[in-house]
Structure formats: C-alpha cells, structure tokens
C-alpha cells in the first residue's frame, strides 16, 4: 500500500499546491468575510498569493528530495512502466496540463491590460529629527489634569477628526467611504498603538503633504493641521484619540 502511494508522490505534491491555491483564491476570502464580519469577501492580494504559492512549491520539492528513495519515487512517475491505469491517465493529463498552465501564465502576464501599479510602500516613514525630541507636556501632569486633557481632547477629536476617522476612532466616519484609501482604524493594534505619541503629533501637524515620497502613491487624504490647530490642542487630540480607540501609545524604550 505504501509503495503504491509513494509512486504517486509527484501527484500528491501537485495536489497539495492546487489545494493551497484554491484555499487562497476561493476559500480564505469567504472565511475572512465571516470572521471579520464584513459585507464583502477579502481577496488574497496577488503579491501574497505569489509568495505563498512559491512557498508551497518549494515545500513540496524539499519534501520530495529529502531522501534518494523519495526523489526516485517523485521522478519515476514520469517514466513509462506497467503501472495502474490511473497512473497512465494521470501521466497524460500532466503532459497536457503542464504546458497549458505555463501558457496560461505567460498569456495572462503578457496580455495588455489596465491596472494601477503595485508599489512598495513604507509603513512608517521616518520621523523627522525635529519631532523626535518632542514630548507630550500633559503626560507629565497629575492624573486629574491628564483626565481633563483627555476629555478636552475627545471633544476636539470629535470636532476635527470624527468626519473621517469616526466617532469611535474605528475609521468609519461619515466621509470614510468617499476616500479611495479609507481612513485608518485606530482601534487596530497595528496602527497608532505601534508608534510613540510624537509620531502621531508629526502626522497630525504635517498630514499627507508632509509625507516623504517613499510613502506615496497611496495618496492619503489626511490634511495638514499645523496652520489650524495649536500644539497643545494637537497633544490633547492625541490623548483623546488613543482613549477613544482604546489603545495606548508605544512607550519609549528605556536604556538598560
């Protein structure tokens, strides 16, 4: 039984890669729609799809070559012998399918089409030096003052930020759907929770116009607030924003 199965090692590897492809292409978008409570599927990005498929193919090849016996089993599938009829059928199928798949790839990559470019984007552009030394003056105050600043900040947040970032700071403000790039959901722990407060201070002050070129072409609609808000108002907004979103700013590492 085991010998029979090992003769089809190549087929098992191909099947595993096909299963992986199907999962990424058809299953995971639906699964994530349910798990994330969305009203639309969440398709796997093409870059990630390519990486994961390469991983799958590599894993299959590594496994098939971990011993001489496996390697022989893997390659011998292509050789003619008096195997079962199923092997004969699969061999022919492979002979036809392989060039077709390669042809399909070549065709789909070379056919002219219209698509916006896929660009590498830098998540957290470098914080300019002049903002590195900034500190939130209200974080050093007594708890009562801090609480008052947070409440003031929340009001300022609802006034200036809510239209885009939403009343719960979840990126679902009334204007959110009008942007191609939706406003950031601050409740997501991977966003403002990963940066120090002065980073948020810089982003609010300078907005999208102050983004360095490596952080484009995502065309963020974030306005620059430096001409409209005073520094102390920005610090309060930051405090209110973190509190509303239920996350805490990254703390500065202490030298050990």
């Amino acid at each position: 039984m085991s010998k029979k199965r090992s003769n089809f090692l190549m087929i098992w590897v191909i099947l595993a890669v096909i299963c992986l492809f199907s999962f990424l292409k058809y299953v995971s978008p639906e699964v994530f729609q349910v798990l994330m409570a969305k009203d639309h599927p969440m398709p796997t990005p093409s870059t990630l799809m390519m990486w994961y498929i390469i991983m799958g193919v590599l894993a299959g090849l590594v496994y098939a070559t971990t011993s001489d016996k496996k390697l022989v089993d893997f390659l011998s599938f292509l050789l003619p012998d008096r195997g079962p009829a199923l092997k004969f059928v699969l061999q022919k199928l492979l002979l036809i399918a392989f060039p077709l798949v390669v042809g399909w790839f070549v065709y789909s990559w070379s056919i002219p089409g219209v698509a916006s470019p896929v660009e590498l984007r830098i998540q957290h552009p470098t914080l300019p030096q002049e903002y590195e030394k900034q500190n939130n003056p209200y974080r050093e105050k007594d708890p009562e003052t801090q609480r008052r600043c947070i409440e003031e900040g929340k009001i300022l947040f609802q006034t200036y930020c809510r239209p885009c970032h939403g009343s719960k700071a979840d990126g679902n403000g009334p204007f959110a759907n009008s942007f191609r790039l939706r406003p950031i959901n601050f409740q997501d722990p991977g966003t403002i929770g990963t940066v120090v407060e002065n980073y948020a201070f810089w982003r609010i002050k300078e907005g999208a116009p102050g983004l360095p070129s490596e952080s484009t072409p995502w065309d963020s609609a974030m306005p620059s607030w430096k001409d409209d808000l005073k520094d102390d108002e920005v610090w309060k907004i930051i405090m209110g924003e973190y509190d509303t979103a239920g996350v805490v700013p990254r703390q500065r590492e202490k030298a050990e």
Partner: peptide, 20 residues
C-alpha cells in the same frame, strides 16, 4: 505588515490591511 497592493486590490479589500 504593509503589503504591496494595487489600487484595485485595495478597493476590493476595503481597508488598509488584509487579515493575513
């Protein structure tokens, strides 16, 4: 964390981060 996405993919995902 920050995937290279085309504009179309970003629109289909509907937010900045794909769950993966």
């Amino acid at each position: 964390h920050n995937l290279p996405l085309s504009g179309e993919e970003r629109a289909m995902i509907g937010e900045q981060y794909h769950p993966f």
